[in-house]
């Protein structure tokens, strides 16, 4: 629901203005928050106590080259990928599959981000061009983009999932993970085409929380494996992706 927060207007004025505002779900916020140009993440010198640094990986030289498509990326995703020993480059949300492939990535991560995934046809196209070419991981918005690229519908949840204790069941292992979440939209698993299948569900309301491809090195999660804030239990998802990347290079 839209709201207006003000220290300048009366409630009548605020209500009047609210009637004229565009709908939240009609605005492409991704273009507002994403980087305008490519940059590489070299770690943060002020961040020696990086919350997610991976002690085992830090000593090794950079192994793999990961391109992160910025739909509104959180630094902790970059911190973790870098901490796992990768060179990390972040590209604008409008980058095409061709732009991304030119960077010769070993793997591509589609980041989280704000707003309605149905407005992001340009990211969907990039996703379609990359699946099958490179290992792909989608997080949150990136997960919704993957679902849409495979014919899935996305819809707005009544309240959304925002918090640090959402139980998610991994349908393959049967294990339940406590996850950090922040999403107002979800993928409807019913219309998925191709070899994409639902891999995780939310135990509170049964909505889709993860997808994976049956053949290709492609998967996504609706929740936040980077935590921050939230439980760190799911950082292993990045390790799983790196295994995929290394397997794919063989």
């Amino acid at each position: 629901m839209l709201g207006l927060l003000t220290s300048e207007m009366t409630s009548d004025e605020a209500l009047h203005q609210l009637k004229d505002l565009p709908r939240y779900e009609a605005i492409d916020y991704v273009k507002e928050v994403c980087t305008g140009q490519l940059y590489s993440w070299s770690g943060n010198p002020n961040d020696a106590a990086s919350k997610m640094s991976h002690p085992a990986a830090r000593k090794t030289a950079h192994r793999d080259h990961i391109v992160v498509v910025d739909g509104g990326v959180k630094y902790n995703i970059l911190r973790i990928l870098h901490g796992l020993g990768n060179s990390v480059v972040v590209v604008p949300c409008t980058s095409s599959a061709k732009d991304i492939l030119k960077l010769k990535p070993d793997g591509v991560v589609f980041s989280p981000g704000p707003g309605n995934p149905a407005l992001l046809g340009y990211m969907e196209e990039a996703m379609k061009g990359l699946v099958g070419q490179k290992p792909v991981m989608g997080i949150c918005l990136g997960h919704q983009i993957l679902g849409r690229a495979f014919g899935g519908r996305t819809f707005k949840l009544k309240f959304g999932h925002r918090g640090g204790n959402h139980p998610v069941k991994d349908l393959i292992s049967g294990r339940v993970h406590i996850t950090a979440q922040n999403h107002g939209f979800a993928v409807d698993g019913e219309m998925l085409k191709g070899d994409l299948e639902v891999s995780h569900v939310n135990l509170n309301d049964g909505t889709v929380e993860g997808l994976r491809h049956k053949e290709l090195p492609v998967f996504s999660i609706q929740y936040h494996s980077e935590a921050s804030p939230g439980p760190r239990d799911n950082v292993y998802m990045f390790e799983r992706f790196m295994e995929m990347v290394r397997e794919n290079k063989k």
């Binding site: 629901m1 839209l2 709201g3 207006l4 927060l5 003000t6 220290s7 300048e8 207007m9 605020a14 203005q17 609210l18 505002l21 939240y24 309240f159 959304g160 925002r162 107002g184």
Partner: peptide
């Protein structure tokens, strides 16, 4: 000031 948005 004044700001508007979806309240979550």
């Amino acid at each position: 000031s004044t700001a508007w948005g979806e309240v979550v």
